[in-house]
Design a protein around this nucleic acid. Structure first.
Length: 468
DNA sequence: ACTCTTGTTGTCTCT
DNA sequence: GAGAGACAACAAGAG
């Protein structure tokens, strides 16, 4: 929430520098809009087109209100590289692709994304004279503080600050090393790097609209052109990351119930544990007894960000790898704590990692011990986020429960007292869970046959998007 | 109808 | 320390 307020404050500063200002009103659109339409003599309303279910419902209401007041509306697509409805329409058979390859083929057939918008003019008209006195009457229309909107005063511990100014500086800094850009390969980053992260950390700025994906894309394409073809390509390249974002958005916009298992046609039906508060909170609060997992969850809570592969580790651990909890519950925790929490991308990735959709090699399980060790054998990352383990010898840092009692005493960290014992035995539960996945997959195949009977189409062996 | 290849990001053991 | 193969073996698309 603080990141959002910082972003709004920065936007206000940009507008003020141009002779205008940002006006923030608090309340429901259905209460606020009819009032300001009248009081401010509005004749045109502009807002960004949005494809999320919540936003669609909200925007439909606003459009209806505008129409009832005879107000012209303008809702350009600017949060994605392409108009997603256009992409669905241009998909073969009107069915959006379900693989990255298919998505790349689709956008190749459509052509380049729209160019970024030009820079805004240096002078803008001031707000309407009555504008500041609307809303709830007494409150100023400035950007509120955390306290104003019901949060405790500034307690944020994240090093990442919101706002377009920060976003553009971060973009320039990330793209200044053109060799780095040209060689970028996502799967090769180091998830344990926390002083200087292995990726750009531009995702929070994309999420909040501080950074235009089209601007980012156009600058990448310019750098690739300079490199004369000597650069990495999607899906692993930096541009590929923007395409993953776009692909997630397309899935979110075209698949019904994309944020849950039930009623979601691409999501495998797996009998996850639900409402297992003990397991879920141990995971969320970093008390699983696996230092690699607990350090990642601590970084999430402190910074609102962690590396992509770190997210893989903890998502696999919560779902198919170890705890067998529902991906929807893990997704909700990420949604609450991540600065870059994004409805479509978050649900996409949780379905991927839980092998519920898009990815199906469920026997590839991330080890909560071995995976981190290959990047950070001395456990520097763990020691930083879990200081209780800071004096544990390297040999035991990923598996402190195996340290002899004398070693635990010397490190002033008794396992089971100062730091928890492992909540599950990974070597045992991961095997059990792989077996359960196999059964769920087999049951899913039988389910497909039933769908064939219902759908009845001789050519449609499997349900596809839009069949329901 | 069938085989073959590929898929952003696994682990463990052996050589 | 890198690389190969086993592990047990999915889904989708090309041919």
């Amino acid at each position: 929430m603080q990141f959002l307020l910082e972003s709004l404050t920065d936007l206000n500063a940009s507008l003020t520098a141009r002779g205008s200002s940002l006006i923030v009103l608090q309340g429901k659109p259905s209460d606020i809009f009819p009032k300001i339409f009248k009081d401010w003599s509005i004749n045109r309303l502009c807002f960004e087109y949005d494809t999320e279910p919540y936003a669609k419902e909200r925007d439909a209401e606003v459009l209806q209100l505008a129409s009832a007041h005879g107000i012209e509306t303008h809702t350009p697509v600017s949060h994605t590289l392409y108009d997603l409805n256009m992409l669905v329409a241009k998909s073969p058979g009107g069915k959006a692709p379900l693989t990255m390859k298919g998505f790349e083929k689709l956008i190749d057939s459509v052509g380049n994304p729209l160019p970024p918008a030009p820079d805004p003019p240096s002078k803008l008209p001031p707000p309407a004279p009555g504008a500041k006195y609307c809303g709830d009457g007494n409150k100023q229309s400035r950007v509120p503080s955390l306290v104003d909107i019901g949060y405790p005063p500034d307690q944020a511990t994240t090093p990442f600050k919101g706002g377009e100014s920060v976003a553009l500086a971060r973009l320039a800094d990330s793209l200044s090393d053109k060799d780095w850009v040209a060689k970028f390969e996502k799967p090769k980053g180091n998830p344990a790097h926390f002083v200087k992260p292995a990726t750009t950390v531009l995702s929070p700025y994309l999420k909040f609209g501080c950074l235009s994906p089209r601007l980012f894309h156009s600058q990448l394409v310019a750098i690739y052109a300079e490199k004369k073809g000597k650069h990495t390509v999607p899906p692993v390249s930096l541009r590929g990351q923007l395409l993953w974002r776009e692909f997630s958005y397309l899935c979110g916009a075209s698949i019904k119930n994309f944020d849950r298992m039930e009623g979601n046609i691409v999501c495998r039906q797996i009998p996850w544990k639900r409402n297992n508060i003990e397991l879920l909170t141990a995971w969320e609060e970093g008390r699983t007894g696996y230092p690699w997992i607990d350090a990642i969850m601590t970084q999430l809570k402190k910074q609102g960000w962690m590396h992509h592969l770190a997210r893989h580790s903890v998502a696999c651990f919560l779902t198919r790898g170890d705890l067998w909890c529902s991906w929807e519950e893990g997704r909700d925790v990420f949604d609450k704590l991540l600065l870059d929490a994004d409805w479509a991308i978050n649900s996409f990735n949780w379905q991927w990692l839980s092998a519920s959709a898009f990815f199906s090699q469920y026997f590839r399980v991330y080890s909560p011990i071995a995976f981190g060790k290959q990047y950070d054998p001395k456990g520097t990352y763990i020691r930083h986020f879990l200081p209780v383990l800071k004096d544990m010898p390297d040999k035991y840092i990923y598996e402190p429960w195996t340290a002899p009692r004398s070693v635990q005493e010397a490190a002033r960290c008794i396992i089971g007292k100062d730091y928890p014992l492992p909540i599950v035995d990974h070597s045992v539960v991961s095997k059990e869970n792989t077996g359960k996945m196999k059964i769920a997959y087999a049951a899913g195949k039988e389910g497909d046959d039933k769908v064939v009977v219902i759908v009845g189409g001789p050519s449609s062996k499997k349900p596809r998007i839009g069949d329901e």
